[in-house]
């Protein structure tokens, strides 16, 4: 790790002004410290944002819940009300890493984490995300990579919470300069879809403050994943679903897939397809087919397509269960 200076920000406002263009925000540090140890980033200043007021609360509001960016994943996963109202969110938090990791990791950090691609993380590899000319996963070892890609980079979004929050139609509130802006989950990641160098849409001086999750009467949510190991392993594919099953029919259901694209993969067409249709495995398979329609298998990641389809069916079955 290169030497750096360290400061604890007392407000969101000062955090974004302190960080400048050579600093990085430090919350749980689970992602950032690894990047620094591997020499992938060499910030001159770390701005600890854990003291920023109002970022540690989980608050039930009228129609919308607010989850602060510095809420740890352990707290989110164990929060009794969250487990009841947004089980998919709690499940997604619980599926992150290990207990110690969840004790440190934060909601904001999970959403803003950088690529886990093993070429990106390899300190000596010069890939497109690090300013090189090519994506080394293309034509390389791409079994953990995207089946839906728009840029040269094949690194997928692996943030569990992004997938769950996308299905829950949540918003992300971000400090941008002196103002706060509210983004959809899609907006939070859209830059990663269009810019191979981007991990998400946020600038280095933009700070996630909280997420806002709408409550929909009668809706359920679920998050499922498949990994190689039973615990403490990245999802090969994950799927979140939220919505209602009324009178045996899907209502207002939203789907999102993780680890298949640079963004949490959502298609309005798939959600619309489900609307009012009987809550059956056949309907679910139809939605899965739409979601994966444009998926393209690389040399080693074709398996993700059937796995994703299976998970969509399982998530939708769990919604109705």
């Amino acid at each position: 790790m290169k030497a750096f200076s360290y400061v604890t920000a007392q407000t969101a406002d000062s955090a974004v002004s302190l960080v400048g263009d050579r600093g990085r925000f430090l919350a749980g540090g689970m992602d950032l410290l690894g990047e620094m140890k591997d020499g992938l980033v060499e910030p001159a200043l770390l701005v600890n944002v854990k003291a920023v007021p109002g970022t540690r609360e989980i608050a039930a509001g009228r129609g919308t819940w607010t989850v602060g960016a510095n809420v740890t994943l352990t707290r989110l996963a164990e929060h009794a009300e969250v487990r009841k109202v947004f089980p998919g969110l709690a499940q997604a938090a619980e599926a992150v890493g290990s207990p110690q990791m969840r004790n440190g990791a934060t909601v904001g950090g999970n959403l803003a984490q950088h690529s886990r691609c093993w070429y990106y993380r390899q300190r000596d590899a010069r890939c497109v995300k690090k300013g090189g000319a090519r994506c080394l996963a293309r034509g390389g070892e791409n079994k953990y990579h995207s089946v839906l890609a728009h840029t040269m980079c094949l690194s997928p979004c692996v943030a569990n919470l992004a997938v769950a929050l996308a299905a829950l139609d949540a918003s992300v509130v971000v400090q941008r300069g002196a103002k706060t802006v509210t983004l959809t989950v899609a907006q939070l990641y859209e830059k990663a879809w269009t810019d191979a160098k981007a991990h998400h849409s946020l600038g280095s001086d933009e700070l996630i403050l909280r997420v806002e999750v709408p409550v929909v009467a009668g809706a359920r949510s679920v998050y499922v994943k498949v990994a190689e190991k039973s615990e403490f392993d990245w999802a090969l594919v994950s799927c979140a679903a939220a919505g209602r099953v009324e009178g045996g029919q899907f209502r207002g259901v939203r789907l999102a897939l993780g680890s298949v694209a640079a963004v949490p993969w959502q298609m309005q067409e798939a959600n619309a397809f489900l609307e009012g249709k009987p809550a059956t495995d056949e309907t679910a398979a139809g939605a899965a087919a739409i979601l994966l329609r444009d998926a393209e298998a690389r040399e080693h990641n074709g398996y993700k397509i059937p796995v994703a389809k299976a998970l969509v069916r399982r998530a939708l079955a769990a919604l109705g269960a």
């Binding site: 994506c135 293309r138 034509g139 079994k143 090969l236 990641n301 074709g302 398996y303």
Partner: peptide, 19 residues
């Protein structure tokens, strides 16, 4: 999982990348 599914014949063949 990728190998088990491949043995079961459920994995679409990957396209060799252009790069």
């Amino acid at each position: 999982p990728d190998r088990v599914l491949a043995a079961l014949g459920q994995v679409p063949k990957g396209t060799a990348d252009t790069v």
